[in-house]
Design a protein around this nucleic acid. Structure first.
Lengths: 132, 132
DNA sequence: ACATCACTTAACCAAAACGTTAAATGTAGT
DNA sequence: ACTACATTTAACGTTTTGGTTAAGTGATGT
């Protein structure tokens, strides 16, 4: 996982296709570990650990119902992830190509007081660094 | 990385805060390895390998300019990642709460021909599985 | 009490990730 | 050709990840 912050945990959780499939499953309905294991070829302990990873990332919550243990999707942390990614929209979204060109031109011109550059909340040189 | 598909590679790349910081840096301007190494406490070989990971994910491209090697952001793959995440918007975005409730009700009622449920392009039981 | 079902934890293993330092490569300048 | 600079590759060690099987744990049913 490398970084142990929330964002890293979320991206890390999403990096595994099995975990993404589990989330997709849970988007339809809450499910038990057994139910979540069924579609895969891997063992139940393996799924159990995937669930733990998802829980660590805050992407699911779990409650015990008798001897069953239900997993529920808790996608709030995805918001932060989505927002992080959105900062780069201009680099791929064609509907922003004009603005992109404009910003590039402005930037190349010496970056006057525009302020619309990508907020570098995580770029180095600020307060980031460490945790490496 | 676990899965070797594009999406896994992208999420995996984003899971590391150093790589996110590098991307943030590259959002402002193309940069050399030396420039990208400066803000961190880690060695240049380490950064070089982070760049390789970003390149593998398609998030940057690199060109050689004399003895310098410029890295350029190539955020197109983020689109797929953003779209994947967006499928779960209703689980966190309050502006979709009403729709969310509606869908939940419809779903609980036995899921009539609605079609607006989350497209489970990666949920198991379909054609997924394998790669585990 | 005892067996059973639904998990989780433990112990283990192989592969991958991430970092380091030292050596190799490639380009430019003298 | 020699030197210097920029970057990568090699070799190495440690930690994390993802999987396995076997042994707990805890609630339910008989």
């Amino acid at each position: 996982m490398s970084g142990s912050d929330q964002l890293s945990a979320v991206f890390s959780a999403l990096a595994d296709p099995t975990r993404r499939a589990i989330l997709a499953e849970l988007a339809d309905r809450d499910a038990t570990v057994t139910e979540l294991t069924a579609p895969f070829t891997i063992s139940m302990p393996a799924v159990s650990r995937h669930l733990k990873a998802l829980e660590r990332a805050g992407l699911i919550s779990r409650t015990r119902s008798g001897k069953l243990r239900m997993s529920r999707i808790e996608a709030a942390p995805l918001r932060e992830a989505a927002e992080w990614i959105e900062r780069y929209r201009r680099f791929w979204d064609t509907s922003l190509t004009r603005l992109d060109a404009h910003l590039a031109a402005v930037q190349a011109a010496g970056r006057p007081t525009d302020g619309s550059a990508i907020p570098d909340s995580e770029s180095p040189g600020k307060a980031h660094d460490k945790e490496n």
